[in-house]
Design a protein around this nucleic acid. Structure first.
Lengths: 304, 304
DNA sequence: GGACGTCCATAGCCCATGGCTATCACAACA
DNA sequence: TGTTGTGATAGCCATGGGCTATGGACGTCC
């Protein structure tokens, strides 16, 4: 049914040389090995391929019929190998960068510059990922590296470099009572304790620890949050806040995406700052990935 | 470098199903076997072919690039198999019949008729072989069956059926003294003892026992023959006899090919008759070969 | 929330395959 | 007659490619 490509090579060379010993030398195998393999091939095909009378080896009719097809099959496989080589070289030079919302802060161009200075043929590709996946595509392999918010679920499966650490804001409807209070505040901020009774917009349950983080569970003690709705993108968040479904904690970097029209954002005292990191799978040690992480670590050191 | 065709099949089916378990069922192998083989293929190519995140299997870029070539290679091999099948079917139905000179006596059409009555798709092919090879192509495989003169060198390597047994003649120049003596003889014959001092034309040395047979060594006692020349065909024999190089024993069936112009042939008393047989290699038990031998045996029974 | 089903990976076993060396058999040739 | 060249054979060993059993990660359903 199937053949090993090797057997076709063997056959083709023997057919050229018409001499097992010389063919074996060309193929870097021993002559008995070659003899045996050709016999196996003949057995498999149920037909003799070579006449071996004492003196000379020559192709039978069947061998003659097989030869061009054998060469064709070998050529087809070589083309396949070439295609794989080309595609895999492209894959090796492509770095898919996952992100839920643009990290902003000039990070992307900065990291890109550092990456290509080290790997001139690298071609970074940006990929937008839904908030439902806090790993921004790392978990399912659709990203090679990703901008993620810490803490990451299954954190020990990833390696990361923190690139930004900033206070968190809360997004409110412009008419919300707390908006007025913030306006009166010397820092223009609110205290988290004043938010405890507000309904909160939450990430989807799959987000795991990240959902808890943006609900600031650690700052609530044992008081469970009220969930006003589930959101999976900046756009949904804007809508839900504007509609009064609830309020939501925000990273500074994401504020521009949510704040407009009837939605404002004000700083919150009493919650830990948010941390944005570039992450990759821990076992992923491809040069491009490591280079991007290194670039991120440098950028993080500069900004934090 | 090389691939086993099987691995390409495996890959193609997995790429279609995008599910190892189902693919394994279609391929009639266990799922672990399939997994392992695909991994081996990936290792060999040095590139991932499938993304396996928990839930779904899908092709990588490299896999995508390989798939059409894999199919192409498989198709090329299938074409090769078909060509081999066709050629080997033709070979199975072809019977190469070796002969040094036409056996005459209506044997060829008779045997052909019997052969095709048993094997309607058989196509007998006649092949002329030099007298230098007494096995008429059996020894080197260029004939499947052959008309041969007994005794055959390496006789135990062949199976045969005698198809004719006839007195031997001697070919003489028309002006030879023995020609006159034969004309005077009541049977128109000569005695072999009268030929003992004549120079004889002999077959090439490779003909072995057959050379000795046509020199009638057994009828000479210890008197070595004089060799007047070596001949390897009816035409050469005619020329050599006409030129007076020597005389030659002949089978009745071959006389018409040698006798003309200045060469005549007369019966010889005192030598054993010649025996013409259809032979094949002893270990050759292909149906067509056996059928031809059987037909020959029947013909021999009728004529001897 | 626990029991089950699905699906891929791993571990461990077994035999056929494909490689090797050494040697034989046979024809050609010197 | 011995030497050379060539293919086949024998016997050995490592690997490959198959299997079963099992694990682990999700979904799904009650």
């Amino acid at each position: 049914m199937d053949v090993h490509g090797r057997d076709l090579r063997y056959f083709a060379v023997v057919a050229e040389e018409l001499n097992f010993t010389r063919a074996a030398e060309r193929l870097f195998v021993s002559q008995p090995t070659l003899s045996k393999q050709i016999r196996m091939l003949e057995k498999q095909l149920g037909a003799c391929l070579f006449h071996r009378d004492r003196r000379a080896v020559r192709l039978t009719e069947v061998g003659e019929a097989l030869l061009p097809h054998a060469r064709g099959t070998l050529a087809a496989w070589e083309a396949a190998e070439a295609a794989v080589e080309k595609a895999s070289a492209a894959a090796r030079h492509t770095l898919v960068i996952g992100m839920s919302t643009s990290p902003g802060r000039g990070l992307l161009p900065a990291l890109r510059t550092r990456l290509v200075s080290r790997h001139p043929d690298a071609t970074p590709v940006l990929r937008q990922v839904n908030w439902a996946d806090p790993s921004a595509g790392l978990a399912d392999g659709s990203s090679d590296v990703a901008f993620v918010w810490l803490p990451l679920p299954d954190g020990d499966r990833y390696q990361y470099a923190v690139v930004a650490q900033e206070p968190r804001l809360v997004a409110l409807p412009r008419g919300h009572p707390l908006a007025a209070r913030a306006a009166a505040d010397p820092e223009g901020a609110v205290d988290f304790v004043d938010l405890l009774d507000e309904p909160f917009l939450a990430l989807p349950p799959q987000a795991g620890p990240l959902r808890e983080y943006w609900l600031a569970l650690d700052a609530r003690g044992d008081r469970a949050p009220r969930i006003g709705g589930v959101v999976a993108s900046a756009e949904e968040t804007h809508e839900a806040v504007a509609n009064g479904q609830g309020v939501a904690l925000l990273a500074v970097g994401n504020a521009p995406l949510v704040v407009r029209d009837e939605v404002i954002a004000v700083p919150v005292r009493g919650v830990s700052p948010s941390r944005l990191a570039v992450a990759a799978r821990r076992n992923d040690e491809r040069p491009l990935v490591l280079a991007y992480l290194a670039a991120a670590a440098k950028a993080g050191a500069g900004t934090s």
